[in-house]
Amino acid sequence: MENKEYIESGILELYVYGLLSEAENVEITNRANNDPEINAEIIAIEQSIVSLSSSFSPFNSVSNYDKIKNELGLREEPKVVQLEPKRSISPYIGWAAAILLLIGIGFQYSQLSSSNDQVVNAITEKGKIEQELNTLTLENKAIESSLAIIRDTNNTVVALGGQAVSPESFAKIYWNKDSQKVYVDASGLPEPPKGMVYQVWSLKLSPLTPTSIGLLDNFVANNQRIFAVDATADAEAFGITLEPSGGSLSPTMEQLYTLGKV
């Protein structure tokens, strides 16, 4: 800082008044020792104080006046309080701008995080919708297949009524005698207990000869309850029994749920 700015800052007055810190006093003392202009200014300030004091204290004795004058004018290293230089507003503007910038960045980050969350949610919802659409597509295909079987006039429909173990049960057989394909509508059967499975039998009646033509696996997962089983050419009746998982070699007649003649 130039001497003119330094002097005009008011720090030398505070130095003379003893209002600066020790470190600031040392700094100004060193500068006064090395700079005649600064030292002269300090002396001038001290002399002004002496003159001002004499004007406000006319009744002081000559000895007291001289003592004060000597203490102020003749000391080699006056104790000076360093004034804080006039602060520019620029640093505060800089700090304010930095704070506003941080707030802006925080807001933008918050908005970006919110946008990212919305994108993730949208992708998740899109995945759910696609999954539901695929499920509906598969269900529609299953319904269409079921309807095609039911509406096929080439199929012989065999109604199977409930038996002693489950009188309320019923089922239908759709049998194409030409292609020998057999479909079972098991919507009238209760859900099989765990570890058990329904087994479908093609029957010759005289003598009674049962032939297994398939198991109704994945009973719960099959919403339409229409199952394709093995082909048969010469059935005279069809029956459905409840058997242990994996099926049986011969039907368990005590677990005969439905039976019907062709």
Rank of each mutant, 00 (worst) to 15 (best):
L100D: 11
Y92I: 13
S55T: 12
S51A: 14
S90A: 10
T124Q: 10
S51D: 15
I103W: 10
N70R: 05
S88N: 03
N34V: 00
I42N: 04
L102H: 11
P58M: 10
N33S: 07
I93M: 12
I89Q: 11
N33M: 12
I68G: 06
V119F: 14
N121V: 06
Y92P: 01
A122C: 04
I45S: 06
Q82I: 00
E125H: 03
K86L: 03
S48G: 12
K79L: 03
K69L: 11
I38H: 03
S54A: 12
G127K: 09
Q82T: 00
N60G: 10
E37V: 06
N121E: 08
Q108W: 06
S55F: 15
E46R: 14
N34H: 11
P36I: 04
E37Y: 08
A122M: 09
E37M: 05
D66P: 04
I105Q: 10
V62H: 12
Q82H: 04
P78S: 01
I43H: 15
L83Y: 01
K86T: 00
L102Q: 07
S110C: 03
D35A: 00
V62T: 13
W95E: 15
G106R: 03
I45V: 01
S90C: 04
Q47C: 08
F107S: 11
K128W: 08
E84V: 03
I38M: 04
E41S: 02
P36M: 04
L52S: 14
Y109G: 09
S63K: 14
S54E: 13
S110A: 08
Q131W: 02
N33H: 05
A96Q: 10
I45L: 13
G94M: 04
A96L: 15
I38C: 00
Q118D: 03
S53R: 11
G106L: 06
A96E: 11
N116Y: 12
N116I: 07
K79E: 02
I123G: 03
W95Y: 15
S55C: 09
P58H: 11
I103Q: 06
Q131C: 05
E46P: 02
V81R: 04
F59M: 14
F107I: 13
I99M: 12
K86P: 00
E125I: 03
G127L: 10
A98F: 15
K128Q: 13
G104I: 08
D35Y: 02
I99C: 10
G73A: 08
G127A: 09
S88L: 01
K128I: 05
R75Q: 02
I105M: 13
Q118G: 03
K86D: 00
